[in-house]
Design a protein around this nucleic acid. Structure first.
Length: 146
DNA sequence: GCGCCGATCATCA
DNA sequence: TGATGATCGGCGC
C-alpha cells in the first residue's frame, strides 16, 4: 500500500492505493508526503477525463453500496445524474444513494460530484466548494472535447 | 412560489 | 435495536 497527495485548489487530495487499486481518497487541508498516480494530477489539472486503469476497491462486492458505486461510475465526464435516477437504476431509495455518497471511500474515482439533487447541487463532504469546482472544471474541459 | 414534514432504507454504533 | 443522513414529493400558507 502506498499513499501520497496532490493539490486541488485550496485542498489537498490524499490517496491510498496499492498498484492500480485505490483504497481511499480524502480531501485534506494539509498535505502528506508522497506521490499519487499520474491520473489524479492530470484529472485535477483538466488534462484527463478518467482514471483508467485505476479502480476503486469500493466497486467490489454485491452490496447495495457497491451497486450504487458502479452505477455512479458509469456517469460520463461532464454529465450529471440525480440521486433519484441512481436509486431507480439500482433498485433502492434516493436516501440510500445519498448515504452511499456520504460514505464514499474514493471520491473522484467514483464521481460522486456528478450526482446532484433533483432541484440543484445536492451536497458534498467535507466542502461543497470542491463539488462546485469539480463540476465547473468538467464543464469547461468537456467543451474542449467536441 | 416557498417552506415544512413525513416517507423510506442501508449502514454503523 | 435505534439513530443517522450529500433526498424526494406533497401539502398548507
Amino acid at each position: 500500500m502506498q499513499s501520497g497527495s496532490c493539490s486541488f485548489n485550496l485542498w489537498k487530495v490524499a490517496v491510498d492505493f496499492d498498484g492500480t487499486t485505490v483504497h481511499r481518497v480524502r480531501f485534506l487541508r494539509t498535505a502528506d508526503t508522497g506521490f499519487v498516480p499520474v491520473q489524479f494530477t492530470k484529472f485535477l489539472a483538466g488534462k484527463g477525463t478518467d482514471f483508467t486503469p485505476l479502480k476503486s476497491a469500493a466497486l467490489d462486492g454485491d452490496s447495495v453500496y457497491a451497486k450504487i458505486y458502479r452505477e455512479v461510475s458509469k456517469i460520463p465526464y461532464g454529465k450529471t445524474k440525480t440521486y433519484a435516477e441512481i436509486a431507480e437504476a439500482v433498485g433502492t431509495h434516493a436516501r440510500v444513494v445519498g448515504n452511499a455518497m456520504s460514505r464514499n471511500p474514493t471520491p473522484l474515482i467514483i464521481p460522486c460530484h456528478r450526482v446532484v439533487g433533483s432541484d440543484g447541487l445536492g451536497g458534498f463532504s467535507p466542502d461543497i466548494d470542491i463539488k462546485k469546482a469539480l463540476l465547473t472544471l468538467e464543464k469547461k474541459v468537456s467543451k474542449n472535447i467536441p
